[in-house]
Design a binder for these strands. Sequence first.
DNA 1: CACAAACGTGAGCAATCCTCGCGTTTGCAA
DNA 2: TTGCAAACGCGAGGATTGCTCACGTTTGTG
Lengths: 210, 210
Amino acid sequence: MESVSAIVQDTPGPRREPTQKRSRERVERMLAVASALIAEKGSDALRMGEVAEKAGVSIGSLYQFFPDKSAIIRALADRYQKESEACIAEALASVKDRKGLEKAFSELVDTYYGIFLGEPVMRDIWSGTQADKALRELELAHSRANAGMLLAVLLRLHPDEDPASLETSAFLIWQLGEATMRLAVSVDRAEGDRLVTAYKRMALGELARD
Amino acid sequence: MESVSAIVQDTPGPRREPTQKRSRERVERMLAVASALIAEKGSDALRMGEVAEKAGVSIGSLYQFFPDKSAIIRALADRYQKESEACIAEALASVKDRKGLEKAFSELVDTYYGIFLGEPVMRDIWSGTQADKALRELELAHSRANAGMLLAVLLRLHPDEDPASLETSAFLIWQLGEATMRLAVSVDRAEGDRLVTAYKRMALGELARD
DNA sequence: CACAAACGTGAGCAATCCTCGCGTTTGCAA
DNA sequence: TTGCAAACGCGAGGATTGCTCACGTTTGTG
């Protein structure tokens, strides 16, 4: 938690935190504009000058709250991560046995796939196209956090299994799930659906391993 | 094959093909310098001016043979792909039955992992950090070609299986293998080894599906 | 030897990220 | 109310870097 927020905001140096109501609204506008521009043209084509102009602020104001371009993207990524965490927690909350885990996992994958298909910004940010070290580290931190929720269930269901082995399984299953999502949304819909189905089969096989 | 070479060289517009011996040697120097710089500082930090300077050529000469920065990286990627293809073909050549496939696949994964660990340039290029559309397409084309070799074996071993389903399996297994490699080399060695082992288990499970 | 095509050059253009010095507004305590 | 420090806001311009282009040089060929 601590380290994640550090990656989100503080990499090149601290920036002013908006304390007044006026500037908080301005920051919201900046993020909204950035999100719209990424949805439209992709994060590679995001231009700081355009964000400032469309948000009705100066370039200087933009840099008062975001230390660099990547910080805007990381801030957006962090919002999506909060939604993801809630979504995963809800899906896994009521799991009581292996059968329940399989059902919950399968539905979670479908939900995630739907989110990936429907959220162009999230898709763009996590499309593995980021030449940005801080963003890669943030993604890894998010992924570990998400895998951790899966691990918690596995530890509960398999208390006599080697915890380190379960952790590796959970982490890999989660990472490969994200890789599958990225791949599935980059090919046509029919192939994407088949890939997600095949992934679920592979992941469930690993989850069923005793 | 046709489309791959198109992605490698011709995206922003054709450039001169080196016909004289002298210029071929110069192009080799440019690629060697670029490779060394990527190994040292990563492809994000590759500077065209530095490549030209260290190769002892002018910036203009560099752009006569590579239409843009990404073309240099794609040219290097293409060389590694040729090695990969040979490596995969050799590993899968003598597969006669399912048992043989499992052994060959397992060894192939180990070999690939070793290559990833030992080749900083290849690791960097395929680290999923490329904000470069042409390079992403090239990676997909390479991956489909490699998955195709695995598919050929599967079709041979399972002639009565649905070919479309086998193709999806082969493609996903290959893509997730590459994802696992990228992940494994980005964490510490011990965790990387565990992840590769877990991946092999998952992939072999999918390969054994009848 | 003439000449066309390939080769080689580097100053400089254009795009873009980000800084910095300075003016303005806000909240608050006296 | 008023004085003031801190927060806010601004945008010209510094710095970097990918890439172009007009021109000079070398090479192969009839």
